[in-house]
Design a protein around this nucleic acid. Structure first.
Lengths: 342, 342
DNA sequence: GAAGATGGCTAAAACGATTTAGTTATCTTT
DNA sequence: AAAGATAACTAAATCGTTTTAGCCATCTTC
C-alpha cells in the first residue's frame, strides 16, 4: 500500500492538483473554489487518508516548521527536562523539535549543526560547546535564527542567549553559606573554559573577597571533562580526603558534581551537614529526597525553555525584515532552595 | 547568503548537474567520469561549502535515513537513557533519530506517528500506548518497519518488540523477598491495562500462589495514570498508612512509583528495611545513592536499545523483499540488584 | 571503412508539493 | 452587441536532488 499523494486525490476527485492544494491549505475561498468542489476534495482526501508529504512541502516552501535542539546530553536530568519544555513550547507555535546530544564534543556539535542544516530546520536552540561561535555565525548568515541556552559567548552579543544568572546565583549561595557561619568553603567545579562556568567561579572568589575571607586555590577542585563516572568519583573523593579535608562547607557547581559529592560522602562516611555542609548549583530529584535533603540553587528550567522559544519564534517571524530584536543575553534569576544539608 | 545547491556547483565547475551528483555520491567511477573532472568538482564543492539538501534527496529517493523514536516521556530517566542509547546506536548505522513523547496519551501517540509519517521517516521505534496496534499495522502496510520497545501487543505477533522479561523479573524479585523471610508483601503498581504491566502483576500473584501464600487484593495498590506528582504521592501515603500498613515488604512495579515510595516513607518516618523492606522494578540514580540503598530489578536498557535498533535495521534492509525476520517478542533478562533496603 | 564497443559526459524526467499566471465561460455594463 | 469584470478553475514552473536513457567522439575489429 503506497502513500497517497495530492495527484491521487486530484485524479479521484476529477480536479487539478492545484485545486486540491488550495483546498488543503485553506486557500480555497481566496481562490474562489466552489463550495461543492471544496467538499468533494475534502471528502476524497479524508477517504484516502491523505497526509501531505512534508519533504516536498519543505522543499518547495523553504520552511519545515521544525526547529533543531542541540543539548549536551539528553540523558542528563537538566537537559531532559529542558528538552521536554521546549518540545511542549514548540508545539504551541506549531513547530516540531529534533533534538540531539553533543556530549560536549566540539566536533560532534559541528556535525550535528551540519546535519540539522542539511535537513533544513528553520531555527536552532543550542547549548554550545567551545569554539562554536563561528559555526553559529554562519547559520545566522544563512538567515537561520539561533538562540543559545544555558551557555553563551560574551564576545558575541549578536548571538542571542537565554540562561540563568550564574554569577548572581552562586553569589547568593555563597552569601547564604557565609551568613550561616561557614568559614572554609570548598568548591568543586569543572573546567571554566566557557563563560557560564567562569561566571560561577568568579562569583565564588568575588564573594569571598567581599567578606575579606582568604582565597585558597587548593580549596577549588576542577574535575576534568571526559572522566568516566568512576574516575570522576575518585577525583571528588581525593579532594574530600585531601585538600578539601578541613572545609566546613562544600559548594558543587553542577548537578552531576553534587551527585558525585553525595556518593563520595556516603562512601567516606562524611556527615552532612555535621562534618560538611553541602550546597549544589542546579536541582535534581535526588537532592530533594536524599537524607539529609540537599540545598540547591535552582535553575528556572521552564522559563529558560519558554524564553528561548519565544526569542526564537520572534526571530523566525522577522527573518530578513527590519531590525532584529535586541540581543543582549537574557539572564534569569536562580532560586536558592535551602534544605537540611546546611 | 543563500545555501549553495548542486546546480551552483555545476555552473561554477562548468559541468552538468548530473556529473556533480555522480561525484558527490561516489558514483563517478561507475559513471566513468574522468579523474580531472572529479577533482575539479570536488574542489569547487569544498570551496563553496556544499551540503546536499536532505529534503530534496529524501523526496527523490524515498529514504530519509531517519528513524522516529516515540517514548512515553523523554524527561523520565529510563526513557532518556533509552533515547541516548538508540541515538548512539543509530549513528553506527548512519541513521538519525527524531524523538518525541506521548505522555502516555493515545491521541498524542497517533498524532506523533502521523507527524513522523509525514516527515517520511524510514522506520519507527515505539513505546506504544493502548490501542495503537491498528495504527502500527498501517505503518507496516506502508512498508515502514516498526519495532516496539518496553511494551508489546501479545495478540499481534506480527509487530516485533524488544523488552525486558517482566514476568521473570518480578518472579525473581518475589522469590528473593520470600527467601529472605518476608510474609506480607505489598505491591504498588499502575493500571495493568497493557501487557507488560499485566505480566508483572501476574508474576506477583503466581509467585505467591506457588509458595501457598495468601493473595490479598488489598495489598495491591494501583496508582491511577495522570495523577500529578502530589496526588500520586498522597495515594502512596494512603496505602502505606492504610491497607499496606502491616506489610513487611513493598514491591514497587515502576521506577517512578519507587521514588514516590521513598518520598512517602521519608515523610511518614517509615524505616527501611526496619519497618518495611523495599524493592523496585527498574533502577534509578536515587536508588543507588539513597540511604539505605534500594534494591532493584534492573532493566537492560542498553541491550533493549541495541536489539531494537538491530531488529529495525534488519527490517529496513529487507523491505519488500523475501520473508521478513521472525517476530516473536524478544524478552531480555532483568537483573536483580540486592542492596540495603532488604 | 563500416559496424560495434567504449569512454566521458549531459538532458530530462521524476519525487510531491506550492504558487503564479493564465484560460474559459458567464455576467455586467454601457 | 462589444468590452470589461468576475467566477471557477487549470497549466506549468519551481524547489534540489537522483537516475535513466542517450549523445557524440574516439577506438577496435574484421
Amino acid at each position: 500500500m503506497k502513500k497517497v499523494s495530492i495527484s491521487d486525490i486530484a485524479r479521484k476527485a476529477g480536479v487539478s492538483v492545484s485545486t486540491v492544494s488550495f483546498v488543503m491549505n485553506d486557500k480555497a475561498v481566496k481562490m474562489r473554489i466552489s463550495r461543492e468542489v471544496i467538499e468533494k476534495v475534502e471528502n476524497v482526501a479524508r477517504e484516502m487518508g491523505y497526509r501531505p508529504n512534508q519533504l516536498a512541502r519543505g522543499l518547495r516552501t523553504g520552511k519545515t516548521k521544525t526547529i533543531g535542539l542541540i543539548v549536551e546530553n539528553i540523558s542528563n536530568a537538566f537537559f531532559a527536562a529542558m528538552a521536554k519544555t521546549i518540545e511542549d513550547e514548540a508545539k504551541k507555535y506549531d513547530y516540531k523539535v529534533v533534538y540531539c546530544s553533543t556530549d560536549n564534543d566540539e566536533t560532534k556539535a559541528r556535525e550535528l549543526i551540519s546535519m540539522l542544516s542539511q535537513r533544513q530546520v528553520d531555527g536552532y536552540i543550542i547549548t554550545p560547546t567551545l569554539n562554536l561561535a563561528e559555526e553559529i555565525r554562519r547559520l545566522q548568515a544563512e538567515n537561520k535564527p539561533v538562540v543559545l541556552i544555558d551557555r553563551y559567548f560574551p564576545e558575541h552579543e549578536e548571538i542571542p542567549s537565554v540562561l540563568v544568572d550564574n554569577y548572581a546565583g552562586v553569589a547568593e549561595g555563597m552569601e547564604f553559606l557565609i551568613a550561616k557561619g561557614y568559614q572554609r568553603i570548598g568548591l568543586v567545579t569543572i573546567e571554566a573554559d566557557m563563560a557560564h562556568m567562569h561566571d560561577r567561579l568568579q562569583a565564588y572568589y568575588d564573594t569571598l573577597r567581599k567578606h575579606d575571607m582568604p582565597q585558597d586555590r587548593r580549596l577549588v577542585r576542577q574535575v576534568p571533562y571526559g572522566y568516566v563516572h568512576i574516575a570522576a568519583l575518585e577525583e571528588v573523593e581525593d579532594f574530600l580526603t585531601g585538600d578539601g579535608k578541613d572545609c566546613d562547607a562544600l559548594f558543587f557547581l553542577t548537578n552531576y558534581l553534587g551527585v558525585l559529592g553525595i556518593e563520595a560522602a556516603k562512601k567516606l562516611n562524611i556527615q552532612i551537614p555535621g562534618d560538611k555542609a553541602f550546597l549544589c548549583f542546579d536541582d535534581n530529584d535526588i537532592f530533594r529526597l536524599y537524607t539529609p535533603t540537599i540545598s540547591v540553587i535552582k535553575q528556572p528550567i521552564c522559563e529558560i525553555g519558554q524564553q528561548a522559544m519565544a526569542a526564537l519564534i520572534e526571530r523566525l517571524r522577522h527573518t530578513g525584515t527590519e531590525a532584529p530584536p535586541e540581543n543582549t543575553p537574557i539572564k534569569l534569576a536562580a532560586q536558592l532552595v535551602p534544605r537540611e544539608s546546611i
